[in-house]
Each structure stands twice: as C-alpha cells, then as structure tokens.
Write a protein that binds this DNA or RNA. Structure first.
Lengths: 243, 243
DNA sequence: ACGCTTCGAATTGTCTGACAACTTCGGCGC
DNA sequence: GCGCCGAAGTTGTCAGACAATTCGAAGCGT
C-alpha cells in the first residue's frame, strides 16, 4: 500500500499558504513584522477563521511564522544564510546563484532494472525498470560534481528517448514532466576513491562529499535516487541547523 | 530582534501531537493504518475537534500522516525521518538515541587567544580570549568523532576551572550555564588527513566528514566554534531537505 | 515629569454545533 | 456477476461564542 493521493479539490487553506509564503519571501511582511490578524485574513480571503488558522498552523510548523496568544502572528527572523543544504534545489540553480555558469555533460543514459541495493534504498520492487544517468556538473567549465542518478521508468513518458535529456535534471522534471520535487532524504558521506571521477580531470579528483539522496514530490512519490559526488573544495556546503 | 518565545501555557494540541508521535513511532498505528477518527480523538483527549485538527495538521505538515476527505487519516508509509542533520542537537543525545552508550575523552583544555582564522570565522576581535577543547566522542567505546571546540571566555563563569568540564558540551551549556543552543551554521567538508586523529585508534582513522560549525543561542549570541571530524562510516548523517 | 497600577481593547486559543464535500460499502435491479 | 444508487461515515469548512493572554492607554501618586 502506498501514499498515492487520489486527486481531490485543493483545500482552500493551501491557497492561503501559497499566497502568504510568496508575500513573506518578497518582503511584503518583513522579518519580525506582525502579520494581519486572523480576522483580517478571513475578510481578505473570504474564508472562515478555521481555514485561516489551518493555513497559519502550516506556516508555523514550517518555521516561517510564530504565533503568540494575545499579541499576534509574527514573521520569524531568519538566519542570514538562507538556501543552505537543508533546502531542496537544483545544483544548477545554486551554481548560477554563485555567479558561475553551470553545465552538464552526460556520460551514459541506460534503461535497466534497478540493482538490489538500489531497490532496497528506494523501497521499490527489485524488477523495477529505471533510467540510469551518469553526469558531470560543471561551473565555468570546472567539474564540481559527478552524479549517478536512477529514475523509475514509470515517471517518464511512454515514448521516451534518453537522448532528449540534457541539462538540469530538476529543470526537466519541472518543465517537461510537470513534477515538482519538494522533499529530499539525503545521507552525507566522505568518499575517497579513484573510481568515481571520469574524464580528463579524473586524476585530480580523489576526495568527495557524497550526497546519497532520495527525491520525492508533494505526495511522497519517489522521483529519483541520486548519488552526487561533490569534488571536495569546489562546492560550498552551508547548513542551517535549528532546535 | 529575535524570536524569543515568551513562555505561555503549553497549547493542548501540542500534547496530542507528542502523544500521537510516540504511538506512531512505537507502532501502535502502523504505517498505512487508519488513525482513529477526529471524533474519537476528541473523546479520548477530552478536547474539541478544532484542537484535534490543529494537532493533526501539524503531524500532516511534518509528513507523518496524510488526511483524505471522506476516508480518514492515515499513517504515512514512509515514516519520514524528521530528526536529521538539519536539527540541532547534542551528538551525545543522537548516540544515545541510536541505542549506544556515549562517552567523552578530553585531550586538552587550554585558555588562549583565538587564532586569526578563528576570529574571522567567528566574527570576534582577534584578541578575544577563548577556551580550546580537544575531545574524542565515543559510542560503546568506539571513537566516532574528534572535536576541536573554541568557546569564548566571556561565556564561562568568572571562576572557571577547565577541569570541571567533562561529558557533553551541550549538557554543560544547558545545565551549568543555563544557555540553550538553538541555531547552528555549519559547513560540510570531506577530509582525509593523518593529523586529525589521536590516541590508540588514530592509525585507523583517515577519512572524515567535517562539520565546521558555529553555535548560537536565541539571541544570536555566539556560543562556540566547533570543528567536529566524524569518522566516516561510524556515524550516520541523515538530512531532510525541503523546498 | 516620572513611575506605577489598573483596566479594557485587541488577538490568539479553544469550544460547540452545523453543514458541505467526499469516500466507502452494501443493497438492489438487471 | 455487474453496475447503479443511496445511506452512513469521515474530513473540510463555516459561524458564533467565550477563555486566556498581551499590550497600550488612562489614571494616579509622588
């Protein structure tokens, strides 16, 4: 039995969450500021207080706001460094944000059955068919990571040509498949091996930070199993830890 | 301005969350099973449906349950690991949670001025006095991490004897100083070096995951600068990444 | 003018009851 | 057996009310 989401009409509270998230991100409600009262939000969105409170509860659990009885609801002050390792996101995007030009070199695209250890980590039957990708990610031409990705065949279009896949994997998911990765379960390891790297610079790369990661979407549907080996020193991992 | 939580009576919903979390973890409600209906939970906890729904909403956002209108509330099949690396916490505690007995061996306790690179990373004047600690953290006797910690002298009691420090650093902060670390800014690196380890097992330890981390409390006051070298393979790093 | 107390308005937390939307399941006709 | 249908059960939303708490303004004494 799986967590399949039989489609139903989107709850009203979700719209409010989406809206307020954007406003907080864009500074309509700056850090520390008080949000409109629940009554105000009711009027604005034309819903009952129960619905508004459902939305606020979600933002609360997500750590974006803090409610205080008698005083109001406030936007949490965020640490200066945002977009750390704890946030999902395309490697490509983070490279671009750092001011460099991202690139992808695909080394192999193979349709095959998942390997036994992959099946176990992914939690899928061992006869699952999947697409294996082998890529190098570059920033301004320098290799910053080697990635081995396994994507269940079921997610891909019936008529799928591996060759059409290029560039960012996240971008392909978003734009071509309409799939939005929102959750990642990662294990972090240090790896020293000569068998990871390939290509002209392989000899230089012996020490890696390995992100052994499962990607999911909103409904906890498994999207991909990615083992990304970041070349130590060429990629900055920030991580914000909270109590 | 900080997110200080002026203490108020604990909301009822929090108790319900705590209770249900335990029951889900302990298998009272197995993965995929349907939870008692909201009406049932109302009767059981003696609260209104609004309060029960607040609690369920939190478990929903945390990824532990899934609600389906008309059908019921179900325990998610993927018991989301929600105590990953992104959560602050004592290493000692996480070792204890994994069922092993934590230990600490202090190698050096020195009062000295911060080094130039430390001062820069910590954002303090270069003449700041600090306590340097050198420790090994063990689980069931096996070394799992080597830690080099720098603590500003100003945080410690006027009459401070380095020798009184033993066991968990977090525990000392909490119980002895009344300081509660709530925020950590960490950088993650892979390190391969013979100069990190010391003691009888030093020769076996050459590959480490380095957590280069600044600890803060509620008011963004710097508590410690800790470089913790986790012996690769002996410590499991989980990380939950969200969009 | 300054500090202190008191009080009431404002705001979130909880309660009660009801209806709407949706799922499930069994009965019924074919 | 198969499909349609409706009733019962469950979550989503609404409305109104009161309790608990916070905050500032008004009033008071010094």
């Amino acid at each position: 039995m799986s967590d399949m989401a039989t489609q139903t009409r989107r709850p009203l509270a979700d719209d409010i969450v989406r809206e307020l998230k954007i406003e907080i991100r864009d500074g309509v409600h700056p850090a520390g500021a008080r949000l409109p009262t629940e009554a105000d939000l009711c009027r604005r969105f034309g819903v009952s207080r129960a619905t508004v409170r459902t939305a606020l509860k979600e933002l609360d659990v997500l750590g974006l706001i803090r409610t205080q009885q008698g005083a109001g609801t406030f936007v949490r002050t965020r640490p200066a460094v945002r977009d750390g390792l704890e946030r999902m996101g395309s490697i490509t995007e983070s490279i671009r944000r750092s001011g460099k030009e991202p690139g992808h070199e695909y080394g192999r695209r193979t349709l095959r059955q998942v390997l036994p250890d992959e099946a176990e980590r992914m939690g899928v039957p061992s006869d699952t068919e999947a697409l294996e990708l082998r890529r190098r990610v570059t920033a301004d031409g320098d290799v910053v990571a080697y990635s081995y990705d396994v994507i269940p065949r079921g997610l891909l279009p019936a008529a799928f040509d591996p060759e059409e896949l290029s560039g960012s994997l996240f971008a392909y998911f978003e734009t071509e498949l309409g799939i939005h990765p929102t959750l990642g379960l990662a294990k972090v390891h240090a790896v020293s091996s000569a068998h990871i790297a390939w290509g002209p610079d392989a000899a230089k790369h012996r020490l890696f930070v390995l992100l052994d990661q499962l990607h999911y979407d909103d409904d906890h549907r498994l999207l991909a199993y990615c083992k990304t080996y970041f070349v130590e020193g060429s990629y900055e991992f920030q991580l914000v830890r909270t109590a």
